[in-house]
Design a protein around this nucleic acid. Structure first.
Lengths: 154, 154
DNA sequence: TTATTTAGTAAAGCATGATTGACTACTATG
DNA sequence: CATAGTAGTCAATCATGCTTTACTAAATAA
């Protein structure tokens, strides 16, 4: 059987490698965070919320809108993370309906270590690529992310 | 509140950008494939099997082992993709218990277009980065993938 | 002030991708 | 040849993350 273009491509596809890299980083991050936070019950779905939380605090409805799911779904996961002491809530002074979600970055030692563990993955990437390559790849991959995101808006 | 290291890092994390890139490529690939294959019932879980199928054919148990899930789970998804004409099965001449799974790259026009659509994402990446950057990023990201995979073996 | 919208919660139900257990059929080992 | 292991399927069950519906309370607009 003659190999089609599709077949030939597989080994050298950046798309595939980016998918794989993303998945491996997720796995590694989850394992590291579970360990460092001392929270075996921590799930991928919890960490998946992180990108939607601003450091200035973010409301649950806003997070849901960003993630593209219902606020009920977000609400439950946030509550679980509050119980784990990873996040905390603070009622918005401007609007007492709204509960702003914050990272509990000044929590216990274990919690501190958890956040550090998540960061350590980036340190690992820098160590492995070197600072120069890291910055270069970061720039290029960020450009791709922006391309996909801007196209989705149409 | 003084920003912690964790807070400062967020905007410039390669780890985060790689996760995001992987997710966006998955979404885009699924949408493109659904459209080109004319298969609205195609799911992410189906495409997720692609990386575990060799062009020389792969047994279901082998795919399951590679993916780290039960063979029953893989079996079901493969059957669905066979019904969609994306894959076909061929009984191994050396072992009549084993059904080798193949890409149906010489299928109908729609099926051909489906595989082309999946490839087109890489063309898009090349167009956007330029060939030189594409190769460079591919090399670096592949190195990261290999690093994570080799560590998982210990 | 009344009506409408918005933030969040609670509970029920659903889709999905997985596991487990039981089975058939074939291969490999003694 | 008998026995153990392997490839695959089927069915039941489970965990999970999601939606839908229904609700409370607060903000906003008429």
């Amino acid at each position: 059987m003659k190999k089609s273009d599709f077949e030939k491509q597989k080994g050298a596809s950046l798309a595939h490698q980016l998918i794989k890299a993303g998945r491996l980083i997720n796995e590694r991050g989850l394992a590291a965070a579970r360990d460092a936070f001392h929270l075996p019950e921590l799930k991928q779905s919890h960490l998946d919320l992180f990108p939607y939380i601003d450091f200035e605090g973010t409301g649950i409805s806003e997070m849901a809108k960003r993630k593209g799911v219902s606020k009920q779904s977000v609400s439950k996961l946030v509550q679980e993370m509050v119980h784990m002491n990873i996040l905390f809530l603070k009622i918005d002074l401007k609007d007492s309906r709204s509960k702003r979600v914050f990272f509990n970055t000044s929590g216990s030692f274990a919690i501190q270590k958890g956040f550090a563990a998540l960061m350590s993955i980036d340190h690992m990437l820098i160590d492995h690529l070197g600072e120069k390559s890291y910055m270069l790849v970061l720039r290029e991959v960020s450009a791709l992310v922006e391309m996909f995101q801007s196209e989705n808006q149409n």
